[in-house]
């Protein structure tokens, strides 16, 4: 293996410009190669490290691919029943108003079984930060059709493509919660390129800062790939996501607080 290590003389701490954050532990993530969950985890952990709130933050884990996310974060985490992360986060935040609280959910969790909890937590303006990973499919259970599956998109329960007349329309959760008065910051981002990762990281930081100022619910959707569920190679699935997901789920801020 040693022949693959090059420029050995440069490898010392004074030249270090980037390394994995200490807020994530050394466990190997169980996610498929190329999955956006890993990048999203790392961005959140980096922001926690930069803001120095590792002992002040409590995360709520969902049910879905990221059900084991508490194995990777060196912060306090609580597992919630399927879809109920916003409800658990509400309780945690009300008991410890001084702590930072975030939920991290996929589209099967947040947009299907947890729609009621999501909408009501946002409508009450609970002072929490919600991360919504949207890959248009139920990843963990085998690629079934989710509420966010695009029209014509193939999944294991819509093998001929989603038929709108029979299976209904895809759901835009982010636009839905943006119109609620309780939300302060609603945005849609992605993590497939370096520039998108940097933008998403800024959005995560803003969301946690708004939480610090008690401004209401902040909601960040991260459009992600599911290369196993989509039956594609990782880079190919990112390209497919750019071509097909982004026209329906356009990136950018949907709601920003007035003070800016």
């Amino acid at each position: 293996m040693a022949e693959k290590v090059v420029n050995i003389e440069m490898i010392n701490p004074e030249n270090l410009v980037y390394q994995k954050t200490k807020v994530l532990n050394d466990n190997v993530m169980h996610y498929c190669p190329g999955c956006g969950h890993g990048t999203a985890h790392r961005i959140i952990a980096e922001v926690i490290e930069e803001m120095d709130i590792q002992s002040e933050i409590i995360g709520i884990a969902p049910v879905g691919c990221s059900v084991l996310m508490y194995n990777y974060f060196n912060v306090d985490m609580q597992e919630a029943a399927h879809g109920r992360a916003p409800a658990v986060a509400t309780a945690v935040k009300r008991l410890w108003p001084d702590k930072f609280v975030f939920t991290y959910q996929g589209d099967g969790d947040l947009a299907a079984i947890g729609t009621a909890e999501t909408i009501h937590a946002c409508n009450r303006g609970e002072n929490i930060t919600m991360f919504f990973i949207n890959n248009g499919i139920y990843g963990m259970t085998g690629g079934q059709m989710a509420p966010t599956t695009l029209e014509g998109m193939r999944s294991s329960t819509s093998p001929y493509g989603r038929d709108i007349s029979m299976m209904g329309n895809p759901l835009k959760m982010t636009e839905l919660v943006a119109q609620l008065p309780g939300t302060c910051y609603v945005t849609r981002q992605a993590v497939h390129t370096p520039s998108n990762v940097r933008k998403t990281k800024k959005a995560v930081r803003k969301a946690l800062e708004y939480q610090q100022k008690n401004m209401g619910t902040s909601f960040i959707e991260i459009v992600s790939n599911c290369n196993s569920g989509w039956k594609m190679a990782p880079v190919e699935s990112n390209n497919w996501m750019v071509e097909n997901m982004f026209p329906f789920f356009p990136l950018g801020d949907i709601k920003v607080p007035d003070e800016e």
Binding site: L16, L24, T39
Partner: peptide, 14 residues
Amino acid sequence: AIVCPDGVITVYRK
């Protein structure tokens, strides 16, 4: 390093 989903890349610069 910043797009690596598993955070396996460490970068040095001089």
